[in-house]
Amino acid sequence: MAVHVTWDVAHTACSSKLFADKLAAAGSYPSLEACIAAAQQIWWNEVDVQGWLEAFAAHPEIGDAAALKEKFAAQGQQQAFGQLSQGEQAAALASANPQVFEELAALNKAYKARHGFIFIICASGKSAPQMLEAIRSRINNSPYDELGAAAREQTKITQLRLEKLLAGSSSSSSSGSSSPAERAHVRTGQLVGHLMPGAAAAAAAAPPAGHGGPLRSPITTHVLDTALGMPAAGLPISLLRVMDGSAAVFDCLASGVTDADGRIGNLLPASAWVAPGTYRMRFDTGTYLRACRERHPDVFRAVPFYPEAAIDFSITPDMSSQHFHIPLLLNPYGYSTYRGS
């Protein structure tokens, strides 16, 4: 079912005038999914940095209850924006105490002074402690890195807002609509992309990942230290995916540290389906190799030759019900990978 996008709707979803102009220019889209795909393409390929900063500046600071009330009390489009912002920060506001508000305010001020714009995060479903953890983990990043991080968070916010604002304009049973599990991932900050047309049926009909066994993370990993002949325990790993609509903008979906067997089995929530796309498994080999040097100074360099190993892999729609095991065989001067089982 077609959806109609006005300029006010587009600007409420993302307060960049250039973004709103371009998204509203088409008027109607064949489906909500087509509209979201167009929004992602416009954001990454047609909106410039000034447009990004304009969108960031429209948001109230995380945890700023006074600013939220002010936007909520505004009229017209500003009121709609304020209502969405208040709803997105509801979990954080409900779980915060005066001390948390104070710390958030101080960190927001320090963040803006360092990076030149406010801290942006897709706040839906996140508690105040989660917000604090996020801003602490990002505040010392370079301004360049944070510009990209904020842009990634903004596109998540835009997508959720378009879904809310246009929900009544599109049939919920239309081809390609997101599954309940996928929407849950979005709301908890683990965005893995929209289901592509036909993928929902494929996921429902497919056996659980693991050929009939219990559900598990559809993407797993295992690291073996071939120099020591043992599992690589304590190696930090992150899983990223190219964001929809972009050519090479990766968003971090999950992270973890290998256990005593060199494995991480719970990178993603247990599922029989994984979103198609281009993924990157990033191995923090430098941290692991430096720790190994403390125990084996004759084998490992003081400065690791490979501070990081990044493995990119592509999952096509016809593979989305399969399991993907991405192992790494590592030594101080080399590494290799293959698709495991």
Rank of each mutant, 00 (worst) to 15 (best):
T158V: 06
I237D: 00
A24R: 01
G27S: 09
A65N: 10
R183M: 11
A113Q: 15
G148L: 10
H325M: 02
A247S: 11
L23F: 07
P214V: 09
I326V: 13
V242Y: 01
A106T: 09
D64F: 03
L53G: 01
S271F: 03
L32D: 04
R152T: 03
Q50W: 08
R280S: 09
V257G: 05
Q75W: 06
F19C: 06
A247P: 00
R152V: 02
L18Y: 00
R339K: 04
G277Y: 05
A206Q: 05
G193K: 00
P30N: 08
P129N: 12
A67D: 01
M319Q: 14
K69N: 14
W52G: 04
V49N: 10
H185L: 14
E294G: 07
H323I: 02
T226F: 11
F72N: 12
P297Q: 13
S217P: 06
Y338E: 11
P180M: 07
S28W: 06
P231H: 07
A58L: 02
P276N: 02
P129K: 13
R241A: 01
L160I: 08
A91N: 11
L53F: 13
R216Q: 13
K112S: 13
D8T: 15
E70D: 15
Y338H: 12
L195D: 07
Q89T: 14
E163H: 07
H323R: 05
F300V: 15
G198E: 04
L18P: 00
S321R: 05
Q40A: 09
T158C: 13
P214Q: 10
P332E: 14
G213E: 10
P304A: 14
E102G: 10
G262M: 13
E308H: 04
S31D: 08
P276Q: 04
T158E: 07
H4R: 12
S177R: 15
D21L: 02
S15F: 01
A91K: 15
N266V: 08
T158W: 00
A80C: 07
A73P: 00
R293Q: 15
D64A: 14
S341T: 09
I311W: 05
P207E: 08
H194G: 08
M196K: 10
R136V: 06
S217E: 08
L215C: 03
C292D: 11
A150V: 04
N45H: 12
L215K: 07
Y111P: 00
G234V: 04
T155M: 11
S314A: 05
E33A: 08
K69R: 15
A201K: 09
A96R: 13
A106G: 07
F313E: 02
Q86G: 05
A74M: 15
A205D: 10
P218N: 02
T6W: 08
P276K: 01
F72V: 00
G76A: 09
A204M: 02
Y144H: 10
G256C: 06
R282I: 03
Q99K: 14
P231C: 11
A10F: 02
A80N: 06
E294A: 15
S95I: 13
A247H: 08
S170L: 04
Q154C: 03
P207W: 05
F19S: 02
G334K: 12
H325F: 03
P218V: 02
S255Q: 12
M281H: 05
N97F: 08
L160G: 09
G210D: 09
P30F: 01
I121Y: 03
E54S: 08
A113P: 08
W52E: 07
A205H: 09
M1I: 10
P327E: 07
